[in-house]
Amino acid sequence: MIAIMIREFRTYFQTPVGYVFMGLFLLVAGFFFTFGNLMNNSSYYTSFLGNILFLYLFAVPLLTMRLLSEERRQRTDQLLLTSPITVVDIVLGKFFAAMLVFLVTLLVTVLYAVVVGIFGDLAVWQTVGGYIGFALLGSSFIALGILVSAVSENQVSAAFFTFFALLFIWFLNLVKTVAPTDPTASTIFAAALVLGLAGFFFANTKSWIASGAVVLLGAAAIVVLHLLHPPFFNGLIPDVLDWFSLLDRYDGFTLGLLKLQEVVFYLSFTSIFLFVTIRMVEKRRWA
């Protein structure tokens, strides 16, 4: 894994990708810091970190687009998959290489905090918490980018779909503010989730019976919940969207709270996407 990580990290800086990522990230971040904090004499550093979250939309596709899709396009994935390295090592090696580039870039922004510390009133531990949250959110998005890269044919489509996947996450945050909260809408939403689950089963097993069983079990669960705990269906849609909202979970870090549940959530999100990526690549290995 370490060998792959080092190779990938070097590749970032043997091609323009690493430099373009760092340069553009620091250009936009520097711009926001200069005009948001420096020119306004504002010492609120965690607000600055919160304001540049949108950068992930553009930075993450750049960082992850070629990681697995390029191997596939150049057919070097055949070499990798037939080499005596596990898929876990391949995926984690690439993930950590991307994380390393991201963290090195983030380290440069610490200079901004130093300036606030010297000339203003820097809330040091709050800033440390802000950086931890920023890095954890970044790791979740990078894991998502790697998954998209694993299922994409080439870099361009990987970048394109990663961008839209991230945009979808931003979009969900808007949707939850207008999502219906009545029990009928919640029931339809729960039914749609069950159907989605059944569809996933069907895609993997091609069995109508297995998928039908999932639908029946899901429907039974909905009926039982309606009978035993009707309040469950009050505002189910915004509740679910709230719980899964990657961006909302960052708010605590901005306020200066380091919550174990948010740390575990981001690590879980990262793990799930890496796990699914590993399953996808493994499936291809044995296909």
């Binding site: 430099y19 340069g23 553009l24 250009l27 520097g30 200069t34 609120y44 009133d121």
Partner: peptide
């Protein structure tokens, strides 16, 4: 509340130039 930064115009210019122009440009 956090107390505002106390910087002169020149300091703003120097750090602004460093963060917006010099560092990103050097990397690119």
């Amino acid at each position: 509340m956090q107390w505002p930064m106390q910087t002169t115009g020149m300091q703003k210019l120097i750090f602004g130039g460093l963060f917006v122009v010099i560092i990103p440009l050097a990397i690119l």
